[in-house]
Design a protein around this nucleic acid. Structure first.
Lengths: 115, 115
DNA sequence: CTTGACTCTGACGTCAACGTCAGGTTCTAG
DNA sequence: CTAGAACCTGACGTTGACGTCAGAGTCAAG
């Protein structure tokens, strides 16, 4: 699969895919002419990255955790990182719930006035 | 209350407080000498901003929603924004839960190997 | 073998939410 | 009244995840 198709199917830009490669997140074969050729699982990987980005992880962090996914090995340091990120995400979820409640307060108040 | 104390009590930098003012989020009185003097509720407001920032809202968006909080009035456009942001935050929470599950998969797999 | 779509590598641009520094002023404790 | 801590206004710097553009090469169809 060439880069344009991966981009379309994963919903990100061609530029983003080249950026992921630069950050060590995504690899590819090259054709004789030098163009990137991706395996089928590239689309799924990119979607996974998007989820982690949306959860607030950085490229560096994702790159550090990728060996856990790819090679199935987990060092003590990686295990600590996993726990740290888990805690961080749990905190973010809590903050989002709080924000949601604050917005709901506003919505309820607005509805009460207009009723 | 002067700016340094607001910063300490709300957990943000002095620079951030001046930035919030520039963005129209936070107002203050001035002393004869030109220094900012904040009301007591400033700390709570700043904490509120931090929650919304953490939830992914921009300064511009927060500024647009502030009238709902401050004046208690809500126009149709603001009501739409409230609903939009509510939906956006709900989506982000779902994405975070997905990411959390993916990390849990990795953690469980790591524990299974080391057990 | 040509054409047009696609891809390549730099390299500079962008945007938000501040950080940081310079050079000067204000406030408050003693 | 003086020292030093805190504050002021610009204004340039930073970071991450890309956007965008230039100039050139590659690929697939006809």
């Amino acid at each position: 699969m060439r880069i344009g198709e991966v981009a379309r199917r994963s919903g990100v830009s061609v530029r983003a895919l080249r950026y992921y490669e630069q950050q060590g997140l995504l690899t590819s074969q090259r054709t004789a002419g030098g163009q990137r050729e991706y395996a089928d699982d590239a689309v799924g990987r990119v979607r996974f990255f998007q989820q982690l980005y949306a959860a607030g992880l950085s490229s560096r962090r994702i790159a550090e955790l990728l060996p856990c996914v790819d090679t199935g090995t987990t060092t003590a340091a990686q295990r600590t990182m996993l726990d740290d990120e888990r805690a961080r995400i749990a905190e973010r979820i809590a903050a989002l719930h709080t924000a949601l409640d604050r917005l709901d307060d506003l919505i309820v108040a607005a509805d009460a006035r207009s009723a």
